[in-house]
């Protein structure tokens, strides 16, 4: 598909855009949430209107299975939060979905179109853009140049087209206007001529999101958008993410902050050890035993019973007694202990 999303986009999501137009006028914003109300809270459940469908995707790094997702559907027009402990495979799943990595098995579709074996830039041209966990601001380009890079279907980006400014100047002008609007929305307009490398961490996150929006995406995938961002900026970032939903985009994001996840997600997918272990609306997640176990370990801080307390105390005193009897071995046992700790 050529890099020209503008003509195809309204055709592709016309009905949807119309329903969103209504949403903009009326308070009930969480269309996707409403649509997901009757969906049962089980792993791999079918959604009313999925935009991304993942089927049997596995990715192994040597002996380690980083991702093994049997079935996962992402609701169109909703904000789906992807959570899980470190090493759960969230970023790897992102990489697979956006073509930055290829899975060992499985297939996955976007809008019914298979994304298997598609290079990252082709996935992006279809309308799936992502941001990165480690922000990728293009340091030695200005903020405005960063933004303009996001625009799709630019005539001046071909080698020979570039040599004829007449062919791309008007396009460049309209892209610049669009970029200014977006920058104003993200409060970066005053910085437009500064090098992106001079921005603060939070501003870079904003810039990366704004740049992704330059491509008129259908699905925006944000990898830890709030990481390392101060609380005040987090609020404004959250507002921007909600705005994306209001504009009809589907948002998938990875986040560790449960308050954030609870605040903005319509649906939450929990991963652990490469698998989806739970999904459901945000309020269902904190009650889910599998999720609690995955995050805190099976022996989390449930209160001790009296008997357990006694037993622990007894074991401790026994251990102390043993150490006192075998003083020569103390050093030995402590070093071994340290070794185990590591």
């Amino acid at each position: 598909m050529p890099a020209d999303p503008t003509p195809t986009e309204p055709a592709g999501s016309g009905a949807h855009a119309a329903s969103l137009g209504q949403a903009a006028h009326h308070p009930p914003r969480r269309l996707a949430q409403a649509a997901l109300r009757d969906v049962s809270w089980e792993v791999g459940v079918a959604k009313p209107d999925p935009i991304v469908v993942v089927d049997g995707v596995t990715r192994q790094f040597g002996g380690l299975t980083a991702v093994a997702v049997d079935h996962l559907e992402i609701q169109r027009g909703g904000i789906t939060g992807l959570i899980g402990p470190n090493g759960a495979g969230k970023t790897t799943l992102f990489n697979l979905l956006t073509g930055f990595d290829q899975p060992n098995t499985g297939n996955w579709t976007f809008d019914g179109r298979s994304l298997a074996d598609l290079a990252p830039h082709k996935v992006a041209r279809l309308g799936v853009v992502r941001t990165f966990q480690l922000t990728k601001a293009l340091s030695r380009l200005t903020v405005m140049q960063n933004m303009l890079l996001g625009a799709q279907g630019q005539k001046g980006e071909s080698f020979f087209g570039a040599l004829w400014p007449g062919t791309w100047r008007s396009q460049e002008r309209s892209n610049t206007e669009k970029a200014m609007d977006l920058l104003a929305r993200f409060k970066l307009d005053a910085k437009k001529d500064d090098f992106a490398g001079t921005l603060s961490g939070g501003q870079r996150k904003l810039l990366e999101m704004a740049r992704a929006l330059m491509s008129n995406p259908k699905v925006v995938m944000l990898d830890e958008p709030m990481a390392g961002v101060n609380p005040a900026l987090t609020q404004s970032l959250l507002g921007h993410v909600k705005d994306l939903r209001e504009e009809g985009m589907t948002v998938i994001f990875v986040e560790h902050d449960m308050d954030v996840v609870r605040d903005i997600s319509d649906w939450v997918v929990v991963m652990a050890a490469g698998r989806v272990i739970a999904e459901g609306p945000p309020e269902s997640i904190s009650q889910n035993q599998a999720v609690v176990d995955a995050y805190l370990g099976a022996h989390h801080d449930a209160p001790l019973t009296v008997e357990e307390e006694d037993r622990v105390l007894a074991e401790a005193s026994q251990a102390i007694a043993r150490e006192e009897h075998t003083e020569g071995a103390i050093l030995d046992s402590t070093t071994r202990q340290e070794g185990n700790d590591r």
Partner: peptide, 10 residues
Amino acid sequence: EDEDAVRALG
């Protein structure tokens, strides 16, 4: 500056 960022932008 960063290849992957450019790839992600199509």
